[in-house]
Design a protein around this nucleic acid. Structure first.
Lengths: 198, 198
DNA sequence: ACGGTAAGCTACAGCCGTGTATCTGAGCAA
DNA sequence: TTGCTCAGATACACGGCTGTAGCTTACCGT
């Protein structure tokens, strides 16, 4: 007795959303390796029994959360500003990476014990829904409009921006500033597509 | 009673080396997050009590191992082959990354719960001893000899090769082939220093 | 208003890693 | 040879996570 429940009982979607949010936060904070039903339950303020009714282990909860999370925003290239659009695409990537979902994905990708299953599920859900990587959407757009030779847009070139942003995130732990992103665009991406900035 | 010990008892350095090897292998396999005294002890075939006599927890064992491991080999730029030297530098990096020590380092860098202490110890030991990143050693050498303008060798440019190799390792899990490395050099690094390959 | 579904609450046995406390006996030095 | 040091082998209590079981009770549809 005693009104030990200030909030009313959650059911269905509301509860599941809370759990999804909880897993993503949890994995972002402690990593896939340390993900436990206990931790998820505590964070979502739900007993473990509720979790076991629906999922068999923490990884399943995580996968389910990834399948239901909002897709990553895609860069929308404007009219005539390749440089600006590239910076915006990278900014989009950084913002997403700092999200719980982004951190969760990072944790999964770098887990030495990550099973192929999880890896695949990740690519299906998070990356396949999008047109490609962040910068390559922009680059393809401008290549089609003849701003630079399309044959220069190789897989390696499409990866340059994301690779440098990722490295910076790993090395320093801090998000790159706009100046950093501009430097990446000017000094690495643009030269690779044959456009040396003035 | 029963020669339950085929091998004789290890002492001092021999034992410690075995333990160091064990931690690095262990962390490479399961990640820092799942590192336990139990696991290290099993792999080194030594009781946990021996570990506790010297170290207080698994991280300490790992740090000690990192401090005592062989430094990373440095690229030695040859006379007049920037392209070839860059590929060799990246190859060196890939080879090292596949090493237990390399995998251990990767695991540490990407651990969400990684303490600043471990992070710092890592940079002191593994990176500070070297002249810089793998490709930057090569690039600096050729910049000094006037093969390209030295002001193009920015921090961003110095990171391009390592960043792309890292991304590939993370994405595919498989080591890049020589063709991949050549593509990285030709399509990303050389253009960035103003040298478009023929 | 009623009844079914499922969330919330214990409880429990089992496993695994922890940290400590002994005890033994091998290896080494004086 | 003697004696010290320290690796090796148990043993144990503790705490955390697991997976399951049983019960109560809030919510919701009819």
């Amino acid at each position: 007795m005693s009104e030990h429940n200030a909030r009313s009982r959650r059911r269905g979607e509301e509860l599941i959303n809370a759990i999804h949010t909880a897993v993503l936060e949890e994995v972002a904070e402690v990593g896939v390796a340390r993900l436990t039903m206990e931790g998820i339950g505590k964070r979502a303020a739900t007993p473990r029994t509720t979790l076991y009714r629906r999922w068999s282990d923490p990884i399943e909860v995580l996968l389910d959360a990834l399948y239901h999370m909002h897709p990553v925003e895609e860069p929308t290239p404007g009219a005539d500003d390749l440089r600006g659009d590239l910076v915006r695409a990278l900014r989009l990537m950084v913002d997403w990476a700092l999200t719980p979902a982004g951190r969760a994905v990072a944790s999964i990708l770098t887990d030495p014990k990550g099973s192929p299953r999880v890896h695949e599920a990740l690519f299906e859900r998070v990356f396949a829904n999008r047109g490609g990587t962040f910068t390559s959407t922009v680059l393809r757009h401008y290549a089609e409009r003849g701003h630079f030779p399309a044959e220069l847009l190789t897989p390696v070139v499409a990866d340059i921006g994301e690779a440098l942003v990722t490295k910076r995130l790993i090395d320093t732990g801090a998000p790159p500033s706009d100046a950093d992103l501009k430097a990446i665009v000017d000094q690495a991406i643009l030269p690779a597509v044959g456009l040396r900035p003035a």
